[in-house]
Amino acid sequence: MARPSDTKIRIQATARELFLEQGVQNTSLKQISDRLGITKPALYYHFSSREELVRSILQPVVAELEAFVAGREPGEGRRLLEDYFDLIWHYREEIAMVLHAPTVLVELDLVDRMWLWRKELTTLLLGPAPSDAARIRATVAFGGMSDCVVEHADLPRDVVKAAAVDAALAALGPLGRTDP
């Protein structure tokens, strides 16, 4: 696989900063090129549109989430939640970007994939036929952890992880206490 150029990486980093500062929809390619001190055509050489640029920033998140779900065994409870936390903490800026501009999920056709990942994570955690109450608790567990990595990104990772995983396990109720 070809390695991205330094310019491409710089464009993505600058775009990520601007997207977090002012939102995806409020950031133009001109603003990105101005901040970088490059011409707009130079930016277009690497990314033909804002959508393509956003997709390139989110692609590693998508790939890692898919690999994460595919590489897990059912019944890993606490370990699954801890590893999931580590993954989403690593991508907290990208998650914040999407939370501030949820239309990005629609534009990049990620809504269905996102729900599928959540369903697969729930199945890994609870098995193939969980009760409605268990599925609701899993939604609170995974959703709460995702919110924590964004809302508390200014705190030390280990502090947030311990509290978020414990809260997720508490939300799961007796199901969350089956692992050592």
Rank of each mutant, 00 (worst) to 15 (best):
residue 2 A to H: 08
residue 3 R to M: 11
residue 5 S to P: 08
residue 6 D to S: 11
residue 8 K to S: 15
residue 8 K to Y: 05
residue 8 K to L: 13
residue 9 I to L: 15
residue 9 I to A: 15
residue 13 A to M: 05
residue 15 A to F: 05
residue 18 L to V: 07
residue 18 L to Q: 04
residue 18 L to R: 10
residue 19 F to N: 08
residue 20 L to A: 08
residue 22 Q to Y: 13
residue 23 G to D: 07
residue 23 G to M: 08
residue 28 S to Y: 09
residue 29 L to Q: 15
residue 32 I to M: 06
residue 33 S to V: 14
residue 34 D to P: 09
residue 35 R to H: 08
residue 39 T to I: 08
residue 41 P to E: 08
residue 41 P to R: 09
residue 43 L to S: 05
residue 44 Y to A: 05
residue 45 Y to S: 06
residue 46 H to D: 02
residue 46 H to Y: 10
residue 47 F to Y: 13
residue 47 F to T: 13
residue 49 S to D: 10
residue 51 E to K: 14
residue 52 E to N: 11
residue 54 V to P: 00
residue 54 V to S: 02
residue 55 R to Q: 11
residue 57 I to P: 00
residue 57 I to V: 07
residue 60 P to N: 06
residue 70 A to I: 12
residue 71 G to A: 10
residue 71 G to N: 06
residue 71 G to I: 07
residue 73 E to T: 14
residue 73 E to R: 12
residue 74 P to H: 09
residue 75 G to I: 00
residue 75 G to T: 02
residue 81 L to W: 01
residue 88 I to E: 02
residue 92 R to S: 09
residue 92 R to P: 00
residue 98 V to D: 02
residue 100 H to I: 09
residue 102 P to D: 12
residue 103 T to V: 13
residue 103 T to W: 09
residue 104 V to P: 00
residue 105 L to H: 06
residue 106 V to Q: 12
residue 109 D to M: 12
residue 109 D to L: 12
residue 110 L to I: 11
residue 111 V to A: 09
residue 112 D to W: 11
residue 114 M to C: 07
residue 115 W to P: 00
residue 115 W to D: 14
residue 120 E to Y: 04
residue 121 L to N: 01
residue 121 L to G: 01
residue 123 T to Y: 03
residue 125 L to W: 01
residue 137 R to Y: 01
residue 138 A to K: 01
residue 140 V to F: 04
residue 142 F to G: 02
residue 145 M to S: 03
residue 146 S to Y: 01
residue 146 S to M: 11
residue 147 D to V: 14
residue 148 C to D: 10
residue 152 H to P: 00
residue 154 D to Y: 10
residue 158 D to H: 04
residue 160 V to F: 05
residue 160 V to I: 10
residue 160 V to A: 03
residue 161 K to N: 11
residue 162 A to R: 13
residue 164 A to T: 07
residue 164 A to N: 01
residue 169 L to E: 01
residue 174 P to T: 12
residue 174 P to A: 13
residue 179 D to K: 07
residue 180 P to F: 10
residue 180 P to H: 08
residue 180 P to V: 12
